[in-house]
Design a protein around this nucleic acid. Structure first.
Length: 363
RNA sequence: UGGGGCGUCGCCAAGUGGUAAGGCAUCGGCUUUUGGUGCCGACAUUCGUUGGUUCGAAUCCAGCCGCCCCAG
């Protein structure tokens, strides 16, 4: 099979390429370019990140890998799409008092969409598109659906970031690392003597100040407690997210967390940990993945953030791609704009949506 | 300028003669392909100030400075 492999310059995608080549596939390397040099001249983010001015170093690493393995390599320019679909959304969400998750959007619209599409348009032929994501993809004959499941390595599972992929996209995708553990992947990297074999894991979206991306003027407003008492001033609600503790600069007898963002009043509401616990949430723009859309309420497991162990909840579909999710136990830091991803007891990704609002009561 | 009270890290606050708790904030690290959370570590040679008593004071005494309250 001819497989286009999305390379980030890191360990995982490099090993994915090696594995597929070893399996006898005809592989092609490709890296998406998302940093628009012309637009972001004055931004300086120091450390490595997904969206970073040091993108060229990653491209250099990916290119070197392909040369070493004698594999064709291409850089696919996705800067326009990335600006329009990821960065513009990132900005409007933050300014609206919500907390976006750029990775979720990027995967569904850029990495697994614009990248392979542009590659094809450039005349690069391939049957499947592969990445180094930790998640398992399979096809269920009975349901006639592609199904996404959490990775074998629970610690590295990235299925949360992939829940918005559609059946048509999944049909063209291959995820070779789903059954591997991170340690195994590193071992393979060492076996192939890859220069990235010891490269650190984590990758932030952006390591600089997000105001670099938002490019907006400070808008001072008040920190208030839940009774409305003014506790201090902030420089813009987009600098905060529900559940945030650090960087508030306000002392109290116990730690304070952001428990609310009011765009109209331009206020950031603070409270104790227990004040931020939520019993339910409303989700919108729900997409379904491993199963057809729910028509009645069901018990499921949900993740409110990637690194969370799925927690039991009830999903009540409300039609029109919305649903109410009721937790069995109250959850912290339920932030509008973030995603709620549905799982079953076996770790299959059922679907998910964007958190529209969180509620203290169970409805 | 009569009476009373108070002044310990950026904030709150223990400590009332034996050589400065704790919480919050802040900073650093770890964790993490969003935001964030969590965890670990750092953080007052000094107790408004000047003198005195004492082997020894943030703790006792006196003056001064500052703040608060009640009377006026």
């Amino acid at each position: 099979m001819k497989i286009l492999v999305g390379l980030s310059g890191g360990v995982d995608s490099s090993v994915a390429l090696c594995i597929l080549k070893e399996e006898g596939h005809e592989v092609i390397g490709a890296t998406m370019s998302i940093w628009d040099k012309a637009k972001h001249l004055n931004i300086t983010a120091q450390k490595d990140a997904c969206f970073s001015p040091h993108e060229e170093e990653d491209i250099k690493a990916a290119r070197a890998l392909c040369e070493k393995l004698d594999v064709p390599y291409h850089v696919i320019d996705c800067t326009k799409e990335y600006q329009r679909l990821v960065l513009d959304n990132f900005k409007s969400e933050y300014l609206a008092g919500r907390t976006p998750n750029p990775c979720v959007i990027c995967n569904a619209t850029i990495k697994f969409e614009a990248l392979p599409r542009s590659a094809k348009a450039q005349g690069i032929a391939f049957d499947k598109f592969a990445t180094g994501h930790y998640a398992r993809l399979s096809y269920n004959e009975n349901l006639q659906r592609y199904q996404l499941r959490c990775a074998a390595d629970e610690k590295k599972d990235q299925s949360y970031f992939l829940y918005r992929l559609q059946q048509e996209q999944l049909s063209r995708i291959h995820l070779p690392l789903g059954e591997y553990t991170k340690e195994q992947v590193r071992d393979i990297a060492r076996k192939y003597n890859l220069p990235v074999s010891e490269k650190p894991d984590s990758q932030d979206f952006y390591t600089g100040d997000i105001n670099d991306i938002l490019q907006t003027e400070p808008k001072p407003g008040n920190f208030v407690d839940k009774k409305g008492k003014v506790l201090g001033t902030h420089q813009g609600i987009w600098n905060f997210t529900i559940g945030q503790r650090r960087g508030l600069g306000i002392s109290a007898d116990r730690p304070l967390y952001v428990i609310g963002l009011d765009k109209d009043k331009n206020e950031v509401m603070l409270g104790y940990a227990e004040d931020g616990m939520k019993a339910s949430l409303s989700a919108k723009d729900i997409t379904w993945l491993s199963v057809p859309p729910f028509t009645e309420e069901k018990e499921i497991f949900v993740k409110l953030r990637s690194s969370q162990k799925p927690v039991p909840a009830v999903c009540v579909p409300n039609g029109n791609e919305t649903a109410t999710i009721r937790f069995f136990e109250k959850q912290k830091a339920v932030a509008a704009g973030q995603s709620v991803v549905f799982y079953d007891e076996n770790g299959f990704v059922l679907g998910g949506g964007f958190i529209k609002s969180a509620h203290n009561a169970a409805d």
